[in-house]
Design a protein around this nucleic acid. Structure first.
Lengths: 156, 156
DNA sequence: GGTATTTGGTCAAGTTTGCTTTACTATATT
DNA sequence: AATATAGTAAAGCAAACTTGACCAAATACC
């Protein structure tokens, strides 16, 4: 590594697509948390996404299914769910079609959280629009969505 | 939340810019780790980025400075550094300008890791190019970079 | 110039988080 | 009747920190 190469290497290494994804991912998560707190939700945790992003809002979901999707043991999933349940965002209902099973469903408070999160996200998107403009933001969303869809299909 | 609204809400909630950033961030990190392992580097950890992304490759960096940048205690930073040092990627040199201080510098192995990571990253970028094409990838990089720069300036 | 305080760094112990492992109950399936 | 599956309960564990106590060199103060 010669002296003259250092600065080039430095910037190529420290600032690239992957770093940008990482920065924005964290930044979005942090700001969304802030905005959710501002809407009256306390004690939210990042790992709650394992539930909220995979919960069937209409019919509810079973614990084992969530565990499987997330690659966690059902015991681990159970702890996360217990946490969310304790804060009143979801409840367990007996599954009429299986006496062993229970369906996790959003409570009214849970539905409020989902809607508030969505609202918070849309605010955040507007902040981004203010920074780069609507056109670029739309382009970004489109390409990103395409990339994610393509990668999801190849890696599975 | 009426029945008919559910599906709409579902997709808007579960798939957006923030989720895409998160997915790609994790995916990139995972694949880069894989590729680094393939190049002979074992025992790498995600939190090593606190060092590698802030280390001055030319002059080295002091522990406290890294701690401050990352918002960690110097003791926490010290543990991360000890970990990296034990694997032989960095060394500590006495700082001639300050008898208390020591400069963290990349070893030859450390420089190799940086270069291998960069190589791995470029491979990954080419995989993305294969999925969406060069033009879209370049557009993505450009807009993303602009967004990150803009956000960095506003939040500080 | 000598004392007091701050600063860079280390060592060791304690804490929290987010899991896994082991062990168990109750219902379904074969 | 035997086995598999849904879920619970509790203990253990590793990672990634923090806290507290310390040393030595630098700087500030009088």
């Amino acid at each position: 590594m010669r002296e003259t190469e250092d600065k080039q290497l430095d910037s190529r290494y420290k600032r690239n697509l992957g770093r940008d994804f990482n920065y924005l991912s964290r930044e979005f998560a942090r700001r969304l948390m802030e905005k959710s707190v501002a809407r009256g939700h306390k004690g939210l945790k990042l790992n709650w996404d394992t539930v909220f992003l995979n919960l069937n809002f209409r019919d509810g979901s079973r614990l084992v299914d969530l565990a499987q999707v997330n690659g966690l043991t059902k015991q681990a999933m159970s702890q996360i769910v217990a946490d969310i349940e304790k804060q009143g965002y979801i409840t367990k209902q007996d599954d009429p079609s299986d006496g062993r099973a229970r369906k996790l469903k959003l409570t009214t408070k849970g539905k409020k959280l989902v809607q508030d999160s969505l609202e918070a996200y849309e605010e955040l998107e507007q902040e981004c629009e203010a920074l780069v403009g609507r056109e670029k933001l739309d382009t970004l969303k489109e390409i990103l969505s395409e990339l994610v869809t393509a990668r999801r299909n190849t890696s599975s």
